[in-house]
Structure formats: C-alpha cells, structure tokens
Amino acid sequence: MNTISIRTATENDLEILLKFEQGVIEAERPLDPFLNSGDLYYYDIPEMIASKNVYLIVGIFGEEIVASGYVRIENSKQYHKNPKHGYIGFMYVKPSFRGQKISNLILASLKNWAKENQLKELRLDVYSNNISALKSYENFGFKKSLVNMRMDI
C-alpha cells in the first residue's frame, strides 16, 4: 500500500504545480467576488523553487504528485514580537485525495522547516467563507487573528 511522502518541489514539477495553482484559483473564485476575471496567476513558481527563503513542497502518492504547499520567510511588522515569521500558502490537494489529512502532512513539514529556520510563528490567509479550510487549519492549531474587510464603492 502506498503512503504519502513529502519532498521539495523541483523545476520538473512545474507543469503540475501550474495546474495546482489554477485549481487554487478555481476554488477561490466563488469565495471572492473581488478576483479579476480571465487568467490569473498567484505565484512565481520557478522563483519559489529557487529561493532559499521559500520551502515549496509536494506530496507524492506512488509516482503521482497529489498536493502542494509552501512556507516563506517574511519580515514581520516592527510592532510584532517576532521579527520574522513563516507565511504559508499554495495549499492544494487533488480533489480525489481530499479528506485523507494530506494537508496535515504538508503543514507539519512546513512547520518543521520553519522551526529549523528559527521561526517562532506561522501565518496564513484563508477566506472567511472557506469553511473546510478554516476547519482544517484550526484542527492543525491555527487560531483566527485578524479579519480583513472590504467593500465596493
């Protein structure tokens, strides 16, 4: 029986990661009326793969890439107690593999990398109406912190 393994993403993974990026955007379009129409790209994936401040990983089942996620070292606001933090993003699990806690494996690996890089805090953004993602992050240990609000004018 195959289990999920985690490894660092490489340039050879670019094609599937670009598809995953579109999967993230497709999932978020109904949640955010402020997203532009047409083709969107959130990430510069080749730059993320090459960066020493980004840990971009993939989850593998057999020979198939089934999940992704990254943590990026960022500077915190001058008034925060931790001068740097890890920012988590690009969390994606192929639909046929959801519900198997693969995101927890990805998050645990990202958290371990952040700890190895002396970070004391992780942050992420999630849509307030993305109930399944909120539940998953909260079950992993994240707490809601700040609500971002906006309006059309």
Score class of each variant (00 low, 15 high):
57 I>G: 09
33 P>K: 14
39 D>I: 09
77 K>W: 13
32 D>L: 12
38 G>W: 04
96 S>W: 01
99 G>T: 07
30 P>R: 12
98 R>Y: 09
52 K>V: 06
43 Y>S: 07
79 Y>L: 14
85 H>M: 11
32 D>K: 12
41 Y>R: 15
47 E>C: 01
98 R>M: 01
85 H>R: 15
17 L>E: 05
81 K>G: 12
45 I>R: 05
27 A>D: 04
16 I>P: 10
60 I>S: 09
34 F>I: 01
77 K>Y: 15
72 R>E: 11
101 K>M: 08
74 E>D: 08
45 I>Q: 00
95 P>H: 02
54 V>R: 01
42 Y>K: 05
17 L>C: 03
18 L>F: 02
59 G>K: 03
35 L>N: 12
87 Y>M: 14
62 G>Y: 01
16 I>R: 13
60 I>M: 13
96 S>P: 04
93 V>T: 15
75 N>I: 02
70 Y>Q: 07
49 I>W: 07
41 Y>V: 11
62 G>Q: 04
34 F>P: 00
103 S>H: 00
72 R>D: 09
52 K>R: 10
49 I>V: 15
78 Q>G: 12
59 G>C: 03
82 N>Y: 15
63 E>Q: 11
32 D>A: 10
36 N>T: 14
75 N>S: 07
90 F>M: 10
24 V>C: 14
78 Q>Y: 14
49 I>H: 06
39 D>R: 13
19 K>L: 15
44 D>Y: 08
85 H>Y: 15
83 P>C: 05
92 Y>K: 06
49 I>L: 08
26 E>A: 15
55 Y>G: 01
16 I>S: 03
